[in-house]
Design a protein around this nucleic acid. Structure first.
Length: 512
DNA sequence: AAAAAAC
């Protein structure tokens, strides 16, 4: 099978040849002729199957005839993450280099100005993440009625991320007379329902079963105590011959910690997660792609679809909680038939997550021992439980008490000893603001006689800083923020109490 | 046990 047989234009074929590809992947071979024919396509394909090119190549030809009007894009591609959107834009640039298609990338985290300018000039290809697209639409910068081709990429991930309402809103803005291409790695019932709503008599294309891992990837599981994880990772990084290494952590906080720790130990590493500003995200990914920084520590923002050639190693610093994520993460290596290695660090308590992964991939992950690090063993559920009980330390100070989530009554709103208060109008709001704090478990009864002012302050207000503001993006609030001071709190500055009018002030001074 | 996405 060759690209020439698929019906693509000479211009696209020339661009494909120049990019070095000679043979279409299965999804490209099946999808390209259907897209050119104008059919709707439902593609069940994972990333790494050549899915992106399967829709960009034929779309370039479909859109070649015709011209875009101002603010009326002719096609729309929806992606779940900003990085994936940028990657699709690159694909259009690569295969569309002999066409004069205009393109705009509408993603969050970057200035709207350039995006608006492009929209005003008219775009053939609009690539967007849902939030920013709707933002532009609400500001009246886009008319969706001219869209002839819609692509919904990574639909299952959009579902995971709660994008479905946005997706449905966007879909209502589009003309019903259009071509739709819908891609998902799985076809769960929710996805099927969505596909039925979006597509009309689609051609179904399915390549490579989900939950399968590439055979060219060598896997290994290292069981160590939590405290030994970083040491084990460093050891692996030193002994393996790395080209590009991608290290996944479950939490953004740990991405930062592991990244900093590696740099401190002399590794050329960088971190990537969704709380970083977009310019940094882009810069880090560029440096990783170019090979300037060969080690990237990342959250699952990089788990799916990220296409960096020649990632030789994937390390799971944490066992992914959802088994499918394991498949996606290690799918970043061993791409296009290349060799890859995927090592997972597990603690003795990760047994059930490891089991879920092994069930999904239908094979055990070979256990591996890292030199210089004591090998552990996965604990059974009961063992884990009893060991955890033994490790439990009594709560020593209030600063270790985790505050109840606001809005959700996990702890009683009032301390048991607190005297029942008359609901005095005007004070009630203040009481409610303070209630969760006062009711923190193990709070000593409020007695002001035996404690100094500073002791009382510590007991009432001291909070573990790490529990505050996990989400540091400006304007974002986590539900479990620490105590917030409303207005001036209890303190009223003296100047506020002073009379405003000179004659009143004079009266005050007289009486003083 | 999380992450992702608009200002």
């Amino acid at each position: 099978m060759s690209f020439e047989e698929l019906g693509l234009s000479a211009e696209v074929l020339r661009a494909v040849a120049e990019s070095g590809y000679t043979e279409p992947t299965p999804i490209q071979a099946q999808a390209i002729p259907q897209v050119l024919r104008g059919r709707d396509v439902m593609g069940i394909a994972q990333t790494g199957t050549g899915k992106t090119a399967a829709f960009t190549m034929p779309m370039i030809d479909v859109l070649a005839a015709g011209r875009a009007k101002a603010r009326m894009p002719r096609s729309l591609i929806l992606e779940p993450t900003r990085e994936l959107a940028a990657q699709v834009a690159e694909s259009f640039e690569k295969y569309g280099k002999y066409h004069r298609l205009s393109m705009a990338l509408l993603i969050g985290g970057v200035s709207m100005e350039d995006q608006i300018k492009k929209l005003d000039r008219g775009v053939d290809v609009l690539i967007a993440t849902p939030g920013r697209l709707l933002d532009h639409h609400e500001r009246g910068r886009i008319m969706m009625s001219g869209i002839k081709v819609l692509v919904v990429d990574e639909a299952d991930r959009m579902l995971d991320m709660g994008f479905i309402p946005d997706l449905e809103r966007i879909c209502k803005l589009l003309p019903t007379n259009r071509q739709t291409l819908f891609f998902s790695a799985t076809m769960m019932p929710d996805i099927k329902r969505l596909a039925d709503a979006f597509l009309t008599t689609p051609v179904e294309i399915s390549v490579s079963r989900p939950s399968s891992t590439a055979t060219t990837v060598t896997q290994g599981l290292i069981i160590v105590e939590d405290a030994d994880k970083r040491g084990a990772l460093r050891n692996l990084l030193r002994t393996e011959t790395l080209n590009h290494a991608l290290i996944f952590c479950n939490r953004k906080r740990d991405v930062d910690i592991v990244g900093k720790s590696l740099i401190k130990h002399g590794f050329n590493a960088a971190a990537l997660h969704g709380d970083m500003v977009q310019s940094e995200r882009t810069a880090v990914l560029d440096r990783f792609r170019s090979g300037e920084v060969p080690i990237l520590v990342a959250s699952d923002v990089a788990a799916r679809g990220l296409d960096v050639a020649e990632i030789s190693h994937v390390f799971n610093f944490d066992v992914p909680i959802h088994a499918e994520d394991y498949v996606h993460r290690i799918g970043r290596t061993g791409r296009a038939g290349r060799e890859g290695k995927a090592y997972t660090l597990a603690t003795p308590y990760d047994a059930k997550f490891v089991r879920a992964i092994e069930d999904l991939i239908k094979q055990p992950i070979p256990r591996i021992v890292v030199e210089g690090v004591e090998a552990g063993e996965l604990l059974s559920d009961e063992q884990a439980k009893s060991r955890k009980r033994g490790r439990h330390k009594p709560v020593a100070t209030l600063s270790h008490v985790k505050l109840p989530k606001s809005g959700k009554d996990k702890a009683p709103r009032k301390a048991p000893e607190a005297p029942a208060e008359e609901p005095v109008r005007g004070r009630r709001r203040d009481e409610e603001e303070r209630a969760p704090r006062a009711a923190a478990p193990a709070a000593p009864p409020p007695s002001s006689t035996d404690r100094s002012g500073s002791e009382r302050y510590r007991a009432d207000f001291a909070v573990d800083r790490s529990e505050q503001r996990r989400d540091r993006r400006p304007g974002r609030r986590d539900d479990d923020l620490g105590p917030s001071v409303v207005g001036f709190g209890d303190h009223v500055p003296a100047f506020i109490l002073r009379p405003v009018y000179p004659e009143h002030r004079a009266a005050e001074e007289r009486s003083a």
